[in-house]
Design a protein around this nucleic acid. Structure first.
Length: 482
RNA sequence: GGCCCCAUCGUCUAAUGGUUAGGACAGAUGGUUCUCAGCCAUCAGGCACGGGUUCGAAUCCCGUUGGGGCUACCA
């Protein structure tokens, strides 16, 4: 049984790189009919916040990534929050101490820093020198008397450690470059390296799929698995996600949290799809996948070794693509929060309003790249248009207004105010008067919408309705548009 | 500094010793059209460099360069 986990630390909002790690774990689990576990790594009391944990869960769910075991739903191997597992780590720590596989180190932070500083000064490699490995009873008593609180360090054995990575192949490390590292802090809570290993063991994790930034930590983890007598899981280190400047994706690169994209009107399926393409691809270089197709196609071996740069442009394109394919009823539903926020739609719109919004939004659908653009795009359907200065200057000059005055009675006479009829009538008008269609269409467009861009003129007029169309044209003729 | 990973168009990628190095986004041009968008067509753009191995290297090996990561009582 395949068991994988996503183990974020709640020290910030879910960001793109983490979301991708979660996604790959999820796809791998589903593809192999395994279990996907969510574990919260909140051993850093200073930086972990409940609020972030909640946000993490919201964002993951929004993305459509569901877990089989986790802090909110429990499971056979809980608890799934490391802060609730402290006693478990202590037991393992005690055992390692008793077996002599780990030892207490009484060096203070200040001493360690000072020694490192000196080492660098002398051109030597910094790092702990294992000096507390063989403390005498007397030393220990002396330190205890001084009130020093020890940390627990693993006694790193001398050996060659081979990591068999599903993505990178065999990676070899020499434990000589790994000093005895801390596994329990002086407050006797575990470090990340220790907690991960204990949990992965106890939670029966079979495949550890995570970012490449953990590759260098892996030999430590293997040493720890061996020390506690646990089987070693399979590893797969995914490439990292970088910003346009090839450095780790961070706030400096603009919006990097999933939440920011959600709030900016990205569709979860577009985000899901795009993220899956970062560092992974099929032989056909296919771009568009549903979640089910992704699960079907996914293969860890096809993951790219090279890091990938997050490209917001392509995400935006893909979002527009998904929006164009979205059924209008759902598109309206998705747009509603944005329209309410812009105060264009009341809190509880009635059915009639929804029907109207469907007619309006379908006209703009192919222009929408993200939902946050919807209010601006359809504003003039819901209230009086705001006239763009350039549009007015260009099309509502004397000539334009003259044409509008001439076409007004023609429009007024249209009984059946349908797009076909409107088009027929206005085209006939152009023909009879000998006007170029564009010289007539553009002024009407600006008069009715206030802008030069937008949906087809006639469907737009139909949806706005005869009465409002005439009123807007009249206003323009009378010079009230500004 | 030490250790580790990586390297195909600007970006995401395909190719697994033999291809005019393919696709997508972005860019340019043209078409459709009442505008924009969309759609369609076309173009431009790449194997980081140097050595090997081989009849033949984007592909295998070594080096150089460049990028990234780890080196915390952060995760």
């Amino acid at each position: 049984m395949v068991r994988v986990r996503f183990a974020p630390s709640p020290t910030g909002y879910l960001h793109i790189g983490n979301a991708r790690t979660a996604l790959f774990n999820y796809l791998f689990a589903r593809k192999n009919n395994g279990k996907f576990i969510l574990r919260i790594e909140d051993t850093d009391k200073e930086r972990s916040k409940k609020e972030y944990e909640e946000a993490l869960i919201v964002d993951l769910k929004w993305l459509g990534i569901e877990w089989d075991e986790g802090p909110d739903i429990g499971g056979e191997y809980g608890p799934y929050r490391q802060s609730e597992r402290i006693e478990i780590y202590r037991e393992f720590a005690d055992k390692l101490l008793k077996e002599g596989k780990a030892y207490k180190c009484y060096c203070t932070k200040e001493e360690l820093e000072e020694r490192n500083r000196k080492a660098i000064e002398e051109g030597k490699s910094p790092g702990y020198d294992n000096r507390c490995r063989n403390l005498t009873e007397e030393d220990i008593k002396k330190f205890e008397r001084e009130g020093r609180k020890p940390v627990l360090r693993l006694r790193v054995p001398e050996k060659i450690i081979k990591v068999n990575d599903l993505i990178r192949g065999e990676v070899v490390f020499d434990s000589k470059v790994i000093p005895d590292f801390v596994i329990m802090k002086s407050d006797w809570t575990p470090t990340f390296n220790f907690a991960v290993v204990v949990d992965d063991y106890l939670m029966k994790i079979t495949h550890v799929i995570r970012g490449e930034d953990h590759l260098s930590n892996t030999p430590k983890h293997i040493l720890l698995f061996e020390a506690i007598g646990a089987p070693i899981p399979q590893f797969a280190h995914m490439s990292m996600t970088l910003g346009p400047d090839r450095t780790r994706l961070s706030k400096r690169h603009g919006a990097t949290s999933v939440m920011a994209y959600r709030e900016d009107g990205y569709l979860p399926e577009a985000f899901f799809n795009y993220i899956a393409l970062l560092g992974w691809g099929t032989t056909e270089s296919r771009e568009i996948f549903t979640k089910e197709e992704l699960i079907q196609e996914f293969s860890i071996e096809r993951c790219n070794k090279a890091s990938a740069i997050f490209d917001p442009e392509k995400l935006l394109w893909m979002n527009g693509y998904y929006i164009r394919k979205t059924p209008i009823s759902r598109l309206v539903e998705l747009s509603l929060p944005f329209l309410k926020k812009a105060a264009l739609v009341e809190e509880n719109p009635d059915e009639e309003k929804i029907k109207y919004l469907e007619k309006v939004i379908i006209l703009e659908q192919e222009r929408i790249k993200k939902l946050s653009e919807v209010p601006e795009l359809i504003e003039f359907f819901l209230k009086e248009p705001v006239y763009e200065e350039n549009a007015v200057k260009k099309y509502l000059d004397e000539k334009g207004k003259k044409i509008l005055s001439e076409v007004y009675p023609v429009i007024e006479k249209i009984e059946d105010f349908s797009r076909e009829k409107i088009e027929e009538v206005i085209r006939r008008f152009c023909e009879e008067k000998g006007y170029k269609t564009s010289h007539v269409f553009h002024p009407i467009r600006v008069a009715v919408s206030g802008r030069t861009k937008g949906p087809g003129l006639f469907e737009m007029m139909e949806v706005i309705g005869k009465e409002r169309v005439l009123k807007r044209i009249e206003n323009v003729i009378r010079g009230r548009e500004e």
